[in-house]
Simulated scan of single mutants.
Amino acid sequence: MIKVAVVGGTGYTGVELMRILARHPQAELALVTSRGDAGRRVAEVYPNLRGVVDLTFQPPEPQLLDQADVIFFATPNGTAMQYAPALLERGRVVIDLAADFRLKDPQVWEQWYGQPHACPELLASAVYGLPEVNREKIKKARLIACPGCYPTAVQLGFLPLLHQHVIERTGLVADCKSGVSGAGRQAQVATLMAETGEGFKAYAVPGHRHLPEIRQGLQALTGKPVELTFVPHLTPMIRGIHATLYARLREEADLQALYERHYAREPFVEVLPAGSHPDTVDVRGANRCQIAVHRPGNGDVVVVLAVIDNLVKGAAGQAVQNMNLVFGLPETAGLELAGLYP
């Protein structure tokens, strides 16, 4: 059994990790940490895990983490990079669900996250944990940077088109909507139910932290710069990402067949039948991305619709998918989760 530690177990992604790992057939949840809830039982803080996780939150002391083979960091940006060098030296696998190792340029990281990087020497060796792109590299990795939720949906949506060079690299648009859980569990006026329940708004239009990550990922697919406009929106729902993506075709292609071929062997990407409109409710609780591709009026603009659960395929589920690859387990182990409906 693989022994697992979760650092930051009281956030939304932390509790999702516990929910998934507790039923994983080849992983043992050995340690869960929390500064604020140290000493309290997990089931006391999260009654939904009563009878499922029989652990007490521990303080995030480095020596406690040595009991685990793999350490998941479900922590705020800037935390994992404080622990990673020592853990890697001691032979542990580090999987970070935050942004500490996603960007390859430390200056770009500092620009978007407002602090210098604590271990820029590790950025080159960190593997970006999008299995549909980096599966073979992930298998050999010891430091994995899990993609953000928006970047997961956007990259999976654009990937087949860029891979086959059938769209222009300029003028790409990602018009994305997210549920409020994407903002985390900390108390914020902007995400109170009374503030969001009857509203719908864009935010961070001048620049969102996920923009350089998406651009970096799309550029890696093409080997050339891409021009992308990314506009996120906050919707009055708890879970889910809906990405509506626009691109201009540069050559004729059977788009439906292109997507079906590209994702034919991917266990967690489902291309819906032609004419479909994916719904975030259908992927709630599942480690799955559903995609539909359209060509309105048979013109030269392609519209791709991609939906994920931001807490699962956009965070905890994808992190476990990466763990499975690193340890040579079936990629679907512990993740064969049907969506929650309604």
Rank of each mutant, 00 (worst) to 15 (best):
M237H: 12
P330D: 02
V154N: 04
P76Y: 02
W112Y: 14
Q67L: 01
M237T: 14
S34W: 10
A145L: 06
A174F: 05
A202S: 11
A257T: 15
L103F: 03
D54G: 09
V94W: 00
T10I: 04
G275W: 01
L103R: 00
Y83M: 03
R169V: 07
L49R: 07
A204I: 06
A316Y: 03
E198L: 14
V293Q: 04
A319C: 06
A190Y: 15
V94I: 06
S125L: 14
G114H: 04
E195K: 10
M323A: 00
R35A: 12
H242N: 05
A187M: 14
C146Q: 13
G36N: 08
R288N: 11
K224N: 00
H208L: 13
E132D: 10
P232L: 06
D54C: 08
V302L: 06
I238W: 15
E260G: 10
G179H: 03
L329Q: 06
P131S: 03
G240S: 04
I308P: 02
V15W: 05
V4L: 04
Y113I: 10
T152Y: 08
Q186D: 14
F200H: 13
P25R: 00
A141T: 04
Y150T: 12
L172R: 10
L221C: 05
C149H: 09
L211Y: 14
H210D: 15
G39P: 06
P60W: 12
Q111Y: 12
E331P: 06
F327M: 04
A243N: 01
C146W: 03
P106A: 08
V133N: 07
K104A: 10
V93F: 06
H277E: 13
A319M: 03
Q115Y: 12
E331V: 13
V93L: 07
A274Y: 00
A315W: 00
N324C: 02
L218Q: 01
A126N: 12
I167N: 02
Y246G: 07
R35N: 09
E331Y: 11
S125E: 15
P342S: 09
H262T: 12
L49K: 05
V303R: 09
L122Q: 12
L255G: 08
M323H: 00
L272T: 05
P120F: 09
A204T: 11
S34D: 07
P59A: 08
Q26N: 15
V4P: 04
L335P: 01
M18K: 00
L87M: 03
Q82A: 12
A319H: 04
K3V: 00
G182A: 10
P25K: 00
A247N: 11
Q26S: 15
A118P: 08
V271A: 10
V7D: 01
P47H: 12
Q26L: 14
E28G: 06
V6W: 02
V304L: 00
V133P: 07
V231N: 08
H24P: 06
P151M: 01
I95C: 07
V283R: 13
Y259V: 08
P232T: 09
G184K: 12
A187R: 15
F327I: 02
T196K: 04
E16I: 02
Q216Y: 11
F158R: 01
